[in-house]
Structure formats: C-alpha cells, structure tokens
Design a protein around this nucleic acid. Structure first.
Lengths: 370, 370
DNA sequence: CTGTTAGCGCTTTCAA
DNA sequence: TTGAAAGCGCTAACAG
C-alpha cells in the first residue's frame, strides 16, 4: 500500500495536513496536538487528512517550542550488568507509563565517561537525569552540581553522595550486610571473610587504614563494609585486615583472596560476598580448596539470582529490589519535573534476606593441613 | 561558583555567545558547531565567550535543522533480561563510539506495545531502529514495513522475520541446538527432552502439529527446536511429542514438564534447555525427583552465566555472543544510515559451545520406581 | 573569511 | 471558533 512511496519522501508536516484538510495550520495543530479548541467538523476533517497522509507528530519540533522533551536520561556503570538492567527496566516502565522515554548511557565506571554522558544528556535537553555515579569518595562532583544548577533535576541512584543534598534512592546496604554478618555470628562464626572491600594498593593493616581506603570507595560498597564491621563490633570480634579483600574487584581476585583466607593459620569459616562476581569467585575458591559449603564454610551473597536457588545446596542471598529502585527513582524525578517539591531526600528501600541453606555453624575443628 | 544562578535562568544560545564575543551568529555557530571557516582569533573569542557563558549546544535545535538526531532506537522484549541487557550494552557501546545515543524501549513481548514503541521512536525522529520483534509467525508486521517505508532504516535483532527482506543479526540457534542434541546422542541418549517448544493449548501429538505450532512461535525458539529435530532425524530417532514442552514458557512450567518427562515409563535421560529459566526450572525438577546430573540425566542449556560454571558439577552451556550481537546490529544500522548499501541481509553469529561436566552417558538402567 | 537571511515543524499569543 | 504571524535555537545558502 505504501509501495509507491517516493525515494525522496519526507514525512508530512502539520502544514500539509492543514492544506489537505483545507484549514489553517493553527487549527490543524490544535487538534493534532490535543490542545485548544476545534469544532467537531473541523476536527474530523483534520483527522481524516492526517490519517490519509500518514501524519506523525514531530516530537523534536514540539520539544523545541515547548521546551520539554519528555525524555529522561539515565546513567549507569554498565547496562549489561543484571543489577542495573533490572533497575533500568524499573525506570523505563514507570517513566513510560507517565509518557516519558529514557535514554540510557553506560559509563563503564569511568568518571570521564560519566561527565561526557551528562553533557550528551544536557545537550539533548532531557527533562531530568537519574544517575548511579562512578564518583568515589574524594572525586569532585561538579559535573553533577553543575547540571542541577542548569536547572536539570537529578536523582541519585544506588550510590548516594553524602554532602550533595540531592534526592537519592538506595537500598539498605549497611543494614543488610550487618544482618548477614550477624547471622554468621549467631551461628558461632568469628572468622568471617568480606569480599570485597575497597580496592587499594596501600597496605591495610589497621582499621583506620581501612576506613581511609573506604572513604575513597563506591558509596554502596562502603556501606556494605560498614555493616559488616558493625556486626563485628557488636559481637566484640576484633577486626582482622586479612579477612577483607582489597584487591581490584574481579571474580578472579575474589577467588584468589578467598583461597588465601581459607589457607590462613586461622582460616575463615564464613564469607560475605557483596556482589554476584564476588560470590561466584568465592564459590570457585571453596571448591578448589576441596571444601564444601556450608559444612566447611558458610556463604551469603548480595544480589540474588534464580541460579542461587538451584545451587546445591541453595545459597542464602540478599536480594536487591531492582525494579522498585528504578520505579522509585523515576517517580521522584518525574514528580520533581512536574514541579513537586521534594520533601524527603534519602529514600532507602529494603533488601530481602532470603534464607536458604548455605549457612550453618563453623566446622568443629579445621586446621590448614590435616 | 554558579551559586548566583537565577531561578529563571535559561541556557545561553548561540546568539548570546555571538553577542558576548562581538561577532555574527553564523561565525559563532560555525566555530561552535565545528563546520565552516573561522579565523583563529575570531574562533578564540567565540570559544572564550562560550566558556564564560557555559554554552552547551542544543542538540534538539541542531536536529531540527539537520534532520538527523544522532539517536538510535532499540526495541526489545525486556531490558531487564540479562540477554537483552548484554545486547543493548553492545549496541550502546558501538553506537556511542560513533556519536550516537540510544533510546531503548521494552515491549514486554506485547505486539501492541511494540507498535506504540515504534511510534514513539518515529516521532522522536531517531535515525534508525534495532528491533527484536515480538511478532510471532502469523502476526502482521506492517508496523515494521511501514517504518521502513517512511525511510527509517530498521535492523532485526535476534529474531528474524523470514519474508521481510531486512538486515537481521542473529545467532546460529539451529546449529547450536543441533550440536547439543548430537552430543547427547553421541553419548548414547535417545530420550531427550526439549524445554521449551512452542506454547500452545492445542494438543500436539504429531510432528505435523508441532510444526504448525512452531510456525506461530518466536523465530529463535523455533530455530532451536528445529535444530533439536534435525539431530533426532539424523540419528533416526523418532519424534516423541511427550518430550517437548508446549506449556507457557515459565520456569515453573519447565519444572513441571521436566518432572513429568522424568516420570514417564520411558523417562528422558537428557534435557536440552533453550533459555536460562528453562535450565533452572529443569534443575529444580531433577533435584526434586531425587536424581542427580549428569549421572541420571544429562543437561545442556542456552545462555551461559558465571553461575553455570560454579554449579556442582559445572554445566555444559551454549553461550550467546550478546555483546557482539549488539555491536554488529549497531554497525550495520549505522552503516546504512551513513548511506552504505547493505549487501548481506542475514548475519549469523556463532554461539560458543562450552563443554563442562553436565553431559555423560545415560544411566545403564533406570526404571520409574525402583 | 564573515555576516545576513531564510527556514526546520511545532506551539503560542493575538486578532479576526 | 479559527487563522496569521512570531519564535524556539540551530544550520545552511548566499552575499559581501
């Protein structure tokens, strides 16, 4: 039916529709744009003409004159990461329901890419930005404050930036980690490994040094570590730097670190993993050491997955409310765009503790080389 | 520094920069837009003024006059699905490298949402669209052809639409499934379950009926099934409808179906799973039946995951080149936008067969209730 | 090399 | 109730 479309075809404009319908542009624009008045008969003529010509509104032109683009910008480290993918799905669903589309940019956890990404979004005149910033403790965040200053609303996602005074939507990282560590402790564990802590090349032998390293860490990771330390403190267990991984955060390093911790004179009997890669890395080390969980080591990991449930034995995990995180972030941003005043700044969603079978008491007596 | 920004502040335009620099708009536009000539001195003045005013180009306005938006539209069933998330990451990376951003829409596998999504993208004047269509065999695809007719290039992703004559980027589903089934057969299996086949409420008792149902299936799923049947045919194993799941595709149904197949008078001894949820569902059934893999049943699944490698025993899987799928789709689309003529229509990427330890020979003798 | 001018397609006063 | 005209910020053709 549209087979006869010319090669130099260009989409019909409101003027063409108006001409076809024999009315003025403005009238056509009013009925097509859904604003202002138009008599039923005129309306019908316009609609018919539009239909006939295959008219589609040009959102760009509309944005130009209205100044609003009905588009949200989303910046995450990696859209390929299941966690962020889930969050983006949440953002996407609720913004779509409110008439907004999203353009999402991945920064690969690089601050420079993040700055560029913000630039792109600002240039494209998005109506607001949701960002899981790659900024570490000491990093400057002018690119974010600058954006807010330009009048573009920003909400922080998953990673808060403490002094920034911006709405943030996060999960209860600290509480969740603490709860996991407490479960270990209740089960009698005192040597609990934490994968992973802040990546640093500096030696970390004191708690003060750990603190210092953490302050230059991703906020969410730092919170998780703090929760772990909280539990230790409450139980009067002294902090042992050998039990916190400080290598770069990769699955492979997790494996190495756990192997080392398992091989200590006083080996770990439990492992708290702060991410999927940390968990799978730890699992590899346990297996390679010829040990089994939970009998030899108990395990809890962040970020549940359908796989964790079919492991043998199934893993006790901490599930993050990814969709809800996205939903909330979008809602808050959209409300702000609609002119609503933000009352609450920090929105903390509860993660779900899923107890399965990877936690039990420490082995009665285990020495390095029996 | 920008603390004194007025509440009714509006971003500086090229005219303002020109005024500040004391030059004509066009000259300012030329240096800021990076086209045309400008003397070094004039250039410097403009740049300085732009810097001072905090000028950022308005991409909307630019798109209005150039007619190109430097934006790609991406339509997938669910951005929260790790497979699509990986693909989108690939698209995003390569298009970003070529100066394009992507707006991605999830359809939840609903054709109506897909149509709406295309409408949105067309309205936003994206320069091209990459789509993993939810269209099943018999569904009309006017929304896609219509888009092409409007002059918007489209490339099909992961799911080809046979008669459509559009560039498609897919994986070698059929070959991969066939290879998996062949491995089972080489190991001596003859009762191989397939999770999952086409969802249908019609009874499927003959191969013809299966075919019919498949023709109303998602293309990629159909290909996988065909590969399975290819292997059976080659080995002279007759098709048994009881070994192909035709329930709605959910993890739970996979569990039920596998449980049933395991409970048959002549039970299955191997399972081919066409998706992650199918695999985890199957695993649950195996466990619930008190059986173990690979001794009692062999298993191969599509879509590798770091979890599959840490299962005990580790799972033999078929890995899809998600990133590459995205990269290629973007490259092809971008080339087409740049005016390149598409020579090849079907681009088939190889999936990677990762042999681990979930396949062995069938159990010597296994009866339903020993 | 630089400045003037005319659109891009829409919304939005403002008259009629 | 409808139409004419101005303008959103930019690019592009054309003079100077």
């Amino acid at each position: 039916m549209a087979a006869d479309r010319d090669r130099s075809w260009s989409p019909p404009t409101i003027s063409e529709v108006a001409a076809e319908a024999g009315v003025g542009r403005a009238s056509a624009a009013r009925t097509l744009g859904g604003y202002g008045y138009a008599s039923p008969e005129l309306r019908d003529r316009v609609l018919a003409a539009a239909e006939k010509l295959g008219y589609r509104t040009n959102a760009l032109a509309r944005s130009m004159s209205t100044g609003i683009s009905h588009t949200l910008g989303v910046i995450v480290a990696d859209i390929g990461n299941p966690f962020f993918a889930g969050v983006v799905r949440g953002i996407s669903d609720t913004s779509r329901a409110r008439g907004f589309d999203t353009i999402v940019l991945s920064t690969h956890e690089e601050l420079d890419e993040e700055k560029a990404a913000i630039g792109v979004l600002v240039d494209k005149r998005v109506d607001g930005i949701i960002i899981a910033s790659a900024a570490l403790g000491r990093d400057a965040v002018d690119h974010i404050t600058g954006t807010v200053d330009r009048g573009v609303p920003v909400v922080l996602l998953d990673r808060a930036i403490e002094h920034l005074n911006l709405a943030s939507v996060v999960t209860d990282n600290r509480e969740a980690a603490r709860r996991a560590a407490e479960l270990f402790i209740q089960n009698g564990h005192r040597r609990i490994g934490f994968i992973w802590g802040p990546a640093t090349t500096e030696p970390v032998t004191t708690r003060r040094e750990l603190s210092a390293a953490t302050s230059n860490n991703l906020w969410s990771d730092g919170e998780r570590l703090r929760g772990y330390l909280d539990a230790l403190d409450d139980a009067g267990i002294s902090f042992d730097p050998a039990l916190v991984m400080t290598e770069e955060k990769t699955e492979e390093n997790a494996t190495h670190s756990v192997a080392r911790m398992l091989d200590l004179p006083a080996p770990i009997t439990a492992i708290l993993c702060s991410e999927t890669d940390a968990t799978t890395g730890a699992l590899r080390a346990v297996r390679a050491s010829g040990l089994r969980y939970p009998d030899d080591v108990s395990i809890i990991g962040f970020d549940d997955s359908s796989w964790a449930a079919v492991m043998d034995p199934p893993l006790t995990m901490i599930e993050q409310p990814m969709l809800e995180l996205g939903n909330r972030a979008a809602e808050i941003l959209l409300d702000e765009i609609d002119g609503g005043n933000q009352t609450q700044l920090m929105h903390t969603l509860e993660s779900r503790f899923i107890e399965r079978s990877s936690v039990t008491g420490p082995p009665p007596l285990r020495s390095r080389n029996p």
